[in-house]
Design a binder for these strands. Structure first.
Lengths: 145, 145
DNA sequence: ATCCTAAAACGAAATCATTTCTATTTAGGA
DNA sequence: TCCTAAATAGAAATGATTTCGTTTTAGGAT
């Protein structure tokens, strides 16, 4: 993995610094999405010094480069997720256990084109995310009176 | 309009207080989305006293009741939009001039069902928003070297 | 291997949008 | 007209996120 992550950084045109790699690997090790502070708490013991701003900065840069994904959360805080899928796609996010799953093919390019044409403007990006409860969490919620 | 907005509030189970009505009408008068502070600045002269927290609180309540719509913005601040369309639908948002336009029918219920089934969980909500430049802003951007 | 430079990291401090809290006021049904 | 739950004030707190000036470092060039 180390190798692959270093390569991913290089491909994104980013220096493979130890901390940046560690942040990326920590996110990779998460089963769901994670917040900057959570990752920082998990990593700070492994370095003599690691600032929370460094974690924020790196996560933002990694997301901007497309190496990781930002989660849109109802509480409006920042969360990130490592998704190995390099295709353009979207996610299902479990708001209970933080699991993130890929959605099948994003069929929005047709919509984008149609909207661009009908509006006479330019669609630059789109946001699509399903929120809910994954199988495990739905079962737990349903089984709890 | 006054009448209609008061009715909309009643239907939403909310008291039609003067300030709440004024906030709703101010948002209605906006051509695009607006922030709590912008609306507050526009309204505070009309009342001897009007607190910014009151604007925040009302906008949030109105959005929760479905009377107004929240905009998802890259800068992660709160913006709201008055959309008279009561059908379930989504929006195209111009990031330059703040214009908001309705998208044609949201075709996500099929996707929700499929995802619910394949994941074995429950899709509770979805986010879909197109961001871009409206016709006017795209032309202006294109014409500016 | 050593240098050099732009990039990255530091962390304390600032920021500032948003929320909380308690007391006071008010809408609107009884 | 009363009554009560809902709404408002507004000062203060909050706390996630960013800024800033300085120091360190990765990694291509020599």
């Amino acid at each position: 993995m180390e190798q692959g992550h270093a390569r991913a950084l290089k491909e994104a045109g980013m220096k493979a610094t130890p901390k940046r790699l560690a942040i990326l690997e920590a996110l990779y090790a998460e089963s769901g999405y994670a917040s900057p502070e959570e990752l920082w708490k998990r990593l700070r013991d492994r370095f003599d010094r690691l600032g929370l701003p460094t974690v924020y900065r790196n996560l933002e840069e990694l997301a901007a480069s497309g190496v990781i994904t930002k989660v849109i959360h109802p509480n409006r805080q920042l969360y990130y997720f490592f998704c190995p899928n390099r295709e353009h796609h979207h996610h299902f996010v479990c708001l209970s256990c933080r699991k993130v799953e890929d959605l099948p093919a994003c069929g929005l390019s047709a919509l984008e084109q149609e909207v661009s044409r009908s509006i006479g403007g330019k669609v630059l990006s789109h946001i699509l995310q399903l929120n809910g409860l994954c199988g495990v969490c739905a079962a737990a919620a349903g089984g709890t009176p």
